[in-house]
Design a protein around this nucleic acid. Sequence first.
DNA 1: TTTAATAAGAAACGCAAAGTATCTAAGGAG
DNA 2: CTCCTTAGATACTTTGCGTTTCTTATTAAA
Lengths: 213, 213
Amino acid sequence: MAEPRSRRRGSELESAILDAAWAELGEVGYGRFTIEAVAARAGTSKPVIYRRWTGRAELALAAWGRRVPVEPIAPDTGALRDDLIALFTWTAKRVNSVMTEIVAGVMGEAFRHPEVAEILRSRLTGPSPLTEAVGAVVARAVARGELEPLTLPHRAARAPLDLVRNESMTCGVPTSDETITELVDDIYLPLLRGLATPTGPGAEGSTVPRDVS
Amino acid sequence: MAEPRSRRRGSELESAILDAAWAELGEVGYGRFTIEAVAARAGTSKPVIYRRWTGRAELALAAWGRRVPVEPIAPDTGALRDDLIALFTWTAKRVNSVMTEIVAGVMGEAFRHPEVAEILRSRLTGPSPLTEAVGAVVARAVARGELEPLTLPHRAARAPLDLVRNESMTCGVPTSDETITELVDDIYLPLLRGLATPTGPGAEGSTVPRDVS
DNA sequence: TTTAATAAGAAACGCAAAGTATCTAAGGAG
DNA sequence: CTCCTTAGATACTTTGCGTTTCTTATTAAA
């Protein structure tokens, strides 16, 4: 290849590299994700990549990062359980694709690169469209009278993603519908009911009063 | 080194290799865990290791496996919440050491080696001393009248380990006491209370009746 | 328009570790 | 005492990392 097209620079080049990285991740997975292959696919060379990212982990996270802003989710079936099933299913679909392998692979390296771990941590635990959707679903259930008014701590709002991710990571297999049902029926619905009982302390999180009009 | 001591064979040799592997994991972590280093430390050579295990992942899992039968845990403070805190703390201590890095590292490779994933999966999700301890703690709380009689699904019994592991894996940082408190107060106690409400279906798992002798 | 700074891209390097192949000799089993 | 398994040494090929050096296209400045 004697450099057929003109040289790309700046963000154009960066986009091409990240697109190539994402394609590589999709094809060979993080396990065989190599800088060399990305460079070849992007039609550039290793130094160009190393000038921008420190290694595999950062590059993979960057490639993943551009794909994160996805379609929002807002199930509204009229029944709490159905909403939750939809929510968990949606989460599982998103988690199961490439993400799990990336997360696991990156984590394996994150112990040596604290800054990478930090990027990953903030991305996994912060507020997200999903936590918002959880809040909305719960609020609607409360409004319908399906749940007593409750306080939803951030941790509880995160829980669906945490549960699904944990499942996906430890099983290495796409999460089945049966598993989702279990997570909803055995864990999350009881958790919500427990949060809604008057016994709870309820010091933190966003209160969801009955009157949500 | 001109082979000072006599040659080891069979299980003696295997033990020496696994001990060396474990020591390596403790010192350099899974990220820099190499077959060569293990061979050198064990005073043997690579082929000997490759004759027994297929690669890093299997060797690491095998080394880890020998250490798993640990001291059992059976907190009995007289109060459910304190028991749970003790349980979660114990779990976090176990998880935080080398294990998280091994799990993350192995998972990163497991996608290419389904048999490895299967080993890992069974070890992480099956019944364990911990799930038994959870059952005992809950049973005692029920016996004391702290909880209504409830059915504890396997998934709920697994949850403490899942929650702590998830925390450890996604944060890459030793789980803090504050986090443990949150997990207990915001997730697990509400979950148990929710399971104890009459609303629950309660079709599976081991029922914990009030009358535990 | 000419010139200088910037950065892309090519090529090659040394390094580390994977995984394999070959050979030797040790220490059981008979 | 002999045979057979296999430990252990050595060396090799491969792959990918991360770096260095150099050329040259492109952009910005003069």
